[in-house]
Nucleic acid binder design. Structure first.
Lengths: 177, 177
DNA sequence: TTCATGGGTTCAGTGAATGAACCCGATCTG
DNA sequence: CAGATCGGGTTCATTCACTGAACCCATGAA
């Protein structure tokens, strides 16, 4: 959200404002969304989001510093890191779910892009990420994402990989390791 | 979120991105939050948010154009308008609630600024705005907001008025009409 | 040797946010 | 009646962040 260097809406005595200090900047929530979808690598974020490289580097760094993502080395030579949602990052799922539902409500004629189901029973999630069948909150790791009828043709490898039904948080496997 | 004039994350086939096109800019969600809290007038937003006047005018206009707020004349001479959340605006409540909870989770040592209760039974709302007692989603109009222990001294008249327990959406009455 | 890949940093240009100043019509105060 | 005040803005220069392109570097492959 393009906060200035003086975060003066920290002055707002409101936890919504606190949240926006961390995830309110442009691109930030989309990076977190992708991370929950299973994207972990710099280059995958890059091609999927079509985000400027400098901005991606800045967002990954600030999200890591905030404890929303964890930077983790997965090979030594050459050194390569991946970014994985922490507990705090996974806790953003309900907010993202609610925002996504609102976005769908915004243009009600559009067909849903993706649907989210409780993996254990297949029921589509309710308004806030809960399972109406089981009546309880569903951890993102137990959410299955399925492509919806509103999706157009996939442009890049990441979009293509995100077309298969898959669990949230499950890492993308584009290249054989 | 400081979108450029070319909204290229419209290209993102995702309703989260669609939502962020509308409410992703800096200040926008805070304006909607205040509107749900009952703030309706230009000047009240101004003193409560400490937002630059030009930005406020821009946000109120774009939110009105998007159908999130409705601009409504409440007196003719001099002409005065107020901004009231529409159905679409009220539908943002779950997302704001989820964000606020996350913001509170972010610094767990802090005392809550405000708590939100189902007005009919007094139960504090669950993680997503539902009432755990009644087991159903609570419309924002049925939510009672109460000041929490984390609130500091009120700086301005709006903050002071928002200190009393009150229903969401109930218009602020600062000046006698 | 040369190229390709992953993961960045640097840089100039642009567009948005900021805060102060100004404007205007209408009402209140003396 | 004059002057101040208020609600609701607009204008403007400055600052700041976003953008996209170019560059860098280490490693591994052809």
């Amino acid at each position: 959200m393009a906060l200035g260097k003086d975060y003066d809406y920290a002055a707002q005595e409101c936890s919504i404002a606190r949240a926006l200090e961390i995830v309110g900047e442009r691109w930030t929530l989309l990076v977190v969304r992708d991370a929950l979808y299973g994207v972990r690598r710099y280059n995958d974020f890059l091609v999927h989001l079509k985000i400027p490289r400098a901005v991606l580097a800045a967002r990954l760094q600030s999200l890591t510093e905030a404890g929303v993502l964890e930077k983790r080395r997965y090979q030594e030579s050459p050194p390569r890191d991946e970014y994985v949602p922490t507990e705090l990052g996974r806790a953003l799922w309900p907010a993202l779910r609610a925002l996504g539902l609102w976005g769908r409500a915004f243009n009600p004629d559009a067909r849903p892009m993706r649907t989210f189901h409780h993996a254990e029973c297949g029921t589509e999630l309710g308004s806030y990420g809960e399972c109406p069948q089981c009546g309880r909150t569903v951890d993102p790791a137990d959410v299955e994402m399925r492509p919806g009828p509103g999706l157009g043709p996939a442009e890049d490898a990441v979009s293509r990989a995100l077309r298969a039904p898959r669990r949230l948080l499950e890492p993308l496997e584009l290249q054989p390791r």
